[in-house]
Amino acid sequence: MINEANFHPSTELLQKFAAGTLSGGMNVAISAHVELCELCRKQTSELEAKATIDWLQTPADDNGAEYSDMIANIISHPQLNKAEEKKSILSEMHMLDHSVSLPKVLAKAAAEGLVWKKLGGGINQAQISLDDETQCEFIYMQPGSQTPVHKHQGSEVTLVLDGSFSDELGQYGRSDFIMRTSIDVHQPRSDEGCLCFAVLDKPLTFTKGIARLLNPLNNYRFKKALSQNTNF
């Protein structure tokens, strides 16, 4: 991949990713970045090796559990001969004049279809539900768009998938991983348009104006609607 990321998850975050202690939504965002970023891929496998060592060094006690039945049950299962075929999954998102290849995990997360809503100011949002702790969404900022000024109750992670955007602190392009916390008040804008994946700890609070929900439409439900209609 030619475009190297300039903004990466912190080592602490990658450590938790390797150890498996993060929420589903955060894991998905980091996994997607790691797929696009060789540097973080390397670091993750190093951190997995470290996590293994930590795991082996942690005192382990299972209160003398008796496992002979479990072992007998396990070895009664057949073994696998080869890895199951990976199901083919959606991997590209078609924009107006080009298509964007999605990291595998995001393709999987979006496989059931995205429901795009128009927010104010040229911002489009498609939420996906991954866990109870985070709000996850694809964001498409149209060229020349700007989000309302907002701050966060928790943290917000944004992974750029296509195009670019900027805020008070910098300019971000494909594969950049940006983390904002509750102390940041920012107003992202995009001149050329931008597709992102975002994970929010808690929903945003808007500090100025109201992002009004405009005609949230989607063909997914619409198809359902058409088929239901035949019963009329």
Partner: peptide, 10 residues
Amino acid sequence: SLAMDTIMMG
């Protein structure tokens, strides 16, 4: 400008 006409699966 978001044309989500088709999503390719591969």
